[in-house]
């Protein structure tokens, strides 16, 4: 088992999932419902990046910026059309959650109507991996790690050091009280949707860049994102980052573990190799999720 390589793989996956999990957790933090459409907003954005970058020939960074803005605005528009009414009426959060499921199904298929089901790649040539501390890692992956890190730090500063962040936290704690303190909570909520989705688009684009872009991608990454967000304690952005890392490590390590070797005290006595069937890999995130939910419903870090 090549520990350095497994660690590197896990870090990259955590960087990709983390940005998406943070956005998911933000929506939950403020609006108290789980947004099933989060990953699909992100993939819509990733397709916009594709069109701007490979279709219109814009610079990649500019494309990501434009797509993040566009997808953010779409998320705000959807909020205005649907969720705002729910907030006014005081509709239960589960209703909003089911609605987001409907939005997810609709969005995913609108993407298919526009871009077809064909899978796409951004025009980035294959790269020779560099060797860093014994692990192979490509320049794109390093770029993903750096982008994710910068975005997270920016996010931290935004939440902790700005008026906006304070207002957001106030709304999260008590929306009524915040309004009483002259915070325009509707406007804040719109900004929050915008930011959460923009972060998601960056994350979604990175996943598509590292792997492949197709309309169903949103659904394929949904459960790992939920898992990361819940692992860290939903509503807690730092938890979401930590959750993504734990999940990524678990996925990479558990398949590599030889339980036979461990049970026999490192080969002390004869015991065949016992490994988890690779067919169960998608179940790893589910099972971790269920175990965490059962043992520690507030996640690793807990909520605030």
């Amino acid at each position: 088992m090549d520990i350095a390589q497994i660690l590197a793989n896990a870090l990259v996956r955590a960087a990709e999932l983390g940005l998406l999990a943070v956005g998911l957790t933000m929506v939950f933090d403020i609006l108290k419902f789980t947004n099933f459409a989060h990953a699909d907003y992100a993939i819509l954005g990733a397709f916009l990046v594709y069109t701007f970058n490979c279709g219109a020939g814009l610079n990649l960074f500019l494309s990501v910026f434009l797509a993040a803005v566009a997808a953010g605005l779409i998320a705000v528009a959807i909020d205005k059309a649907i969720f705002k009414g729910f907030r006014k009426k005081g509709t239960k959060s589960v209703t909003a959650m089911i609605t987001s499921l409907g939005i997810a199904i609709a969005l995913r298929n609108i993407v298919r109507m526009i871009w077809t089901s064909e899978s796409r790649t951004y025009a980035i040539p294959i790269q020779r991996p560099l060797r860093i501390l014994g692990a192979r890692i490509t320049p794109v992956q390093i770029g993903i790690l750096i982008t994710s890190l910068v975005a997270m730090i920016g996010f931290h500063l935004l939440l902790q050091r700005t008026k906006f962040g304070k207002a957001l936290r106030a709304i999260s704690d008590n929306r009524v009280l915040a309004s009483a303190c002259a915070i325009d909570s509707e406007k804040m909520i719109q900004w929050m949707w915008f930011l959460a989705t923009a972060f998601g688009v960056v994350g979604g684009t990175m996943i598509a860049m590292e792997h492949l872009l197709y309309p169903r991608l949103g659904f394929d990454i949904l459960i790992p994102i939920f898992c990361a967000a819940i692992l860290g304690g939903i509503g807690n952005p730092y938890g979401a980052m930590l959750g993504a890392l734990v999940l990524a490590l678990a996925e990479n390590v558990i398949l590599a573990l030889d339980f036979g070797h461990i049970l026999s005290f490192g080969g002390l006595f004869e015991l065949g190799s016992i490994q988890i069937k690779t067919g169960y890999k998608p179940a790893i995130s589910f099972v971790i999720l269920v175990i965490v939910l059962l043992l520690r419903p507030t996640g690793i870090l807990g909520r605030k």
């Binding site: 789980t34 959060s93 459960i223 939920f226 179940a283 589910f286 939910l293």
Partner: peptide, 13 residues
């Protein structure tokens, strides 16, 4: 909310 997500995972398991 959590239970809902857990059941989604449970169904896949």
């Amino acid at each position: 909310d959590y239970w809902a997500i857990a059941t989604l995972a449970g169904g896949e398991v």
